[in-house]
Amino acid sequence: MTAEALAILQAAGAEEIEHPGGTLLAHLKRVSALLAAWGARPALVSAGLCHAFYGTDGFPVALLDLGRRAELVEAIGVEAEALVYFYASCDRTSSYRGLTDDAGAFVDRFTGTHTHPSLAARRDFAELTAANELDIAAISPEARSRHGADLLGLFTRWRPLLSEPAWAHCRTVLGRSDR
């Protein structure tokens, strides 16, 4: 975790924003730590720490306006910030179902642009999504009860994109041990 990224998170009030398991800042730190535990490269670990900076399709609170992307680039680097933008930009309804397909469309919710991301980009996205959702499911029995079956279905479909550690954690948190 970079000191600059943590300073921006604190300045943006991430310590005061409620989130399952405490605060948004606590969640972001757990997601980053989970990615590190799975052996993710540093840029993805940094993206995990900062994945909510621009809000997401499922969490609309933005800590930074998109016009301030350069500040995040300065704190975590170009590659990690691009991962944060890619994650935040996802129109989930339009993009999730085709994520494992090379020809599947990824829709940017900010611009409406349809793209066909590389396999590496789709793997990073799936890994970050798994870390985010599994942290919430692990920390909140209510969220796990309400969304666990759907998450297991999603991550089972995305299995080709997930690392072995991410898939093992998915099975542990969501209760499936047969694969």
Results as ranks from 00 to 15, higher is better:
60 P>D: 08
169 H>S: 08
113 T>D: 11
136 I>C: 06
119 L>D: 05
61 V>E: 11
130 A>G: 07
80 A>M: 07
30 R>I: 03
2 T>M: 03
40 A>M: 03
87 Y>G: 00
55 G>Q: 06
151 L>D: 02
97 R>G: 03
122 R>F: 00
74 E>H: 14
130 A>F: 05
162 L>P: 04
127 E>K: 04
16 E>P: 05
120 A>M: 02
128 L>R: 07
138 A>C: 10
86 F>M: 11
177 S>Y: 14
126 A>C: 03
31 V>T: 13
108 D>F: 02
21 G>F: 05
3 A>N: 12
60 P>M: 00
174 L>K: 00
69 R>N: 06
37 A>P: 09
154 L>F: 07
151 L>C: 05
106 F>Q: 01
150 D>P: 01
126 A>K: 00
150 D>Q: 13
107 V>T: 10
178 D>V: 00
19 H>T: 05
154 L>R: 12
92 R>D: 14
59 F>W: 15
144 R>D: 09
99 L>C: 06
16 E>D: 15
166 A>H: 05
14 A>C: 08
153 G>K: 07
114 H>D: 15
119 L>Q: 13
65 D>I: 04
155 F>M: 05
29 K>T: 11
20 P>V: 02
63 L>H: 03
8 I>L: 15
105 A>Y: 04
140 S>H: 08
107 V>H: 02
132 N>G: 09
64 L>C: 04
143 A>M: 08
130 A>Y: 03
80 A>G: 08
118 S>P: 13
100 T>G: 05
130 A>L: 12
42 P>L: 02
48 G>Q: 05
52 A>E: 15
15 E>P: 04
170 C>I: 08
67 G>K: 05
82 A>F: 07
116 H>C: 09
29 K>A: 11
45 V>L: 01
157 R>M: 11
86 F>Y: 10
50 C>R: 01
165 P>H: 06
121 A>M: 11
66 L>C: 12
5 A>S: 15
26 A>D: 14
39 G>F: 01
172 T>L: 12
85 Y>E: 09
161 L>D: 14
18 E>A: 15
155 F>Y: 14
33 A>H: 12
49 L>G: 05
142 E>W: 11
163 S>K: 04
36 A>R: 12
176 R>L: 04
76 I>V: 15
117 P>N: 05
34 L>N: 11
69 R>C: 03
137 A>C: 12
154 L>C: 11
49 L>Q: 05
65 D>Y: 03
105 A>H: 07
46 S>G: 00
41 R>L: 01
161 L>R: 07
161 L>K: 06
